[in-house]
Design a protein around this nucleic acid. Structure first.
Length: 493
RNA sequence: GACAAGGUGGCUGAAUGGUUAAGGCUACGGAUUGCAAAUCCGUCAUUUAUGAGUUCGAAUCUCAUCCUUGUCUCCA
């Protein structure tokens, strides 16, 4: 029996508003799509949080033995700035301001995006398609929507007819809005829109003469609408009906709502079985916003080069901080919170290091098998990583107790504990052991061991001035000495 | 304004009807130590924004009030 069949996953489905038992369409296989970044500027930290949460989902499903095809797109065209203006695409606008080629902007920020994600130890998705690479698929999709009568052509542009669609289907099913309310609440935009109704959205926009990014189509030289690419790419690689679609909460309406409508209008079926939405990231209690200046980007957070935080934080500390809250909760990024996470993270890592030094006993005072299943139960419950971490700390406590002699574990249990701790900490949560990954560690530890020996001699001679000097100056350089019953160890912070 | 999600200790953050409301950080007391740090043991929410209701029983369900956030127009 495959391992995943022994675990019963529940996923909170935004579409139903309930936790549901996860049952993939194809046993053993999972198709997952997550809306990727628009590469017209450095990746937003909140966006990183979303991707981090789905990286954990991806990792856990893989850990359970599922074959997962994880598709995360790159939006490099077609993100409309405003339906009512001339239709200038965001990427083009930025490019003109900087006097460089659009694809140069795309290239630069795509590289930046990948660098940031690599730093945070993300697993690469199975497929990372670009919008510009799927223009033909998008044109085909528009044709089928027109053929089915749910879109109309005006002046070379194509619009989705939301009112017509709502006669046969239900527009607003995901965000729980009613079309009538939308009509009532839509403010009248200035200007001469080609749209029949303000709720309609663009599938294809005719390009103005100065618009650089453009492709030929049956309707005009132009570019695809923003919502279209995700439908085209997700269904191309995962099928017309697939398992999981994720993204940030802010994309629920209109983006994901439009994806559902596009799939129903072209293929007559709802595309996704489980909709998952990651909640927002705040900074010091308030939303991040470029206009108010309450924002920090990933590079600034990692380097410490910002006005919000007292120091630079390691990528794994930030990952750990994120995993300590549920992906469905708003997470508030603060210096105090990060400092607390940093301490907790080091505590967990220290316990994992201790696993190699434990001496086995004849009996176990801790039920490792039962504890292990509790870890799985936590993750099975809508990927509840905070509970998982609580269990990892319980194990840390047990490890420290075995070390100090107030608890015992058999050889078998130590091995199982070690495997499980490694599985969850490194494989599922994606944390990295900063010390061991640091090259030159062997030379460093050799030098520190020598200092520890000198300090022991000084202490034996009651030369505490010297022994404290060694200890304090090492501490000032970030190397902490730890005196235990069996001698002194150290850790690098 | 409409719709949606929330409001849990000094901070952070779990728990959706059932005995003493996880875990981390901080703080305090003890063990250990030459002194610290680390580690271990112990203590820290009669109470879940406020008020009312349903129930044998509510953080959890209902209603009202206050507040925060998201979406509705570019904003991750």
């Amino acid at each position: 029996m495959p391992f995943y069949e022994t675990q019963n996953i529940q996923i909170y489905n935004t579409l139903s508003g309930k936790k549901e038992v996860f049952k993939p369409i194809e046993p053993g296989y999972v198709g997952m799509y997550v809306c990727g970044p628009t590469v017209y500027s450095n990746v937003h930290l909140g966006n990183v949080r979303t991707f981090m949460s789905f990286d954990m989902v991806f990792r856990y499903l893989k850990h359970l033995g599922y074959k997962v095809r994880y598709v995360r797109n790159i939006t490099d065209a077609g993100h409309l700035e405003n339906d009512a203006d001339v239709g200038e695409d965001k990427i083009t606008k930025k490019a003109r301001l900087e006097q460089i080629e659009p694809m140069e902007v795309v290239q630069r920020y795509t590289v930046d995006f990948h660098n940031i994600l690599n730093t945070f130890n993300f697993l690469p998705p199975s497929i990372e398609p670009t919008a510009t690479g799927h223009i033909i698929e998008q044109i085909e999709l528009i044709k089928s929507i027109i053929d089915n009568g749910y879109a109309y052509v005006v002046n070379g542009s194509v619009y989705f007819d939301v009112h017509k669609f709502n006669e046969s289907y239900e527009y607003g099913i995901l965000s729980k809005r009613k079309l009538e309310e939308l009509i009532h609440n839509t403010r009248a935009l200035d200007g001469q829109s080609d749209k029949k109704n303000p709720q309609d959205f663009a599938l294809w926009k005719r390009a103005e003469p100065q618009h650089i990014m453009r492709w030929p189509s049956p309707w005009s030289d132009g570019f695809p609408g923003w919502h279209l690419e995700c439908t085209a790419m997700s269904t191309k690689y995962l099928g017309d009906n697939f398992d999981i679609h994720g993204g940030g909460m802010d994309l629920k309406f209109p983006h994901h709502e439009c994806e559902i409508a596009q799939s129903q209008a072209s293929k007559n079926q709802s595309p996704v079985n489980y909709w998952m939405h990651a909640n927002m990231l705040h900074l010091n209690g308030q939303r991040m916003s470029k206009s108010t200046g309450n924002t920090v980007n990933p590079a600034e957070l990692l380097s410490g080069n910002n006005s919000f935080f007292s120091k630079a934080y390691a990528p794994s500390v930030i990952r750990f901080f994120n995993a300590q809250s549920s992906y469905r909760s708003v997470l508030d990024l603060t210096d105090d919170g990060l400092l607390a996470s940093e301490k907790g993270f080091h505590r967990l890592m220290d316990a994992i290091h201790l696993l190699d030094e434990l001496e086995a006993g004849d009996t176990s005072t801790f039920d490792v098998q039962k504890w292990r299943q509790l870890c799985y139960d936590a993750m099975n419950d809508d990927f509840n990583s905070p509970i998982l971490i609580a269990h990892l700390f319980e194990a840390s406590k047990q490890i420290n107790q075995v070390k100090t002699g107030t608890a015992t574990l058999t050889k078998t249990d130590i091995a199982l504990l070690k495997t499980t701790m490694h599985d969850f900490t490194f494989d599922v949560l994606g944390l990295e052991d900063q010390v061991s990954s640091d090259s030159g560690t062997d030379k460093l530890s050799g030098a520190v061991e020598l200092l520890i020996k000198l300090r022991q001699e000084a202490r034996a001679n009651k030369d505490f001035a010297l022994s404290d000097k060694i200890r304090d100056e090492l501490a000032a350089k970030g190397i902490q000495l730890k005196d235990g019953k069996d001698g002194t160890t150290f850790s690098v912070n």
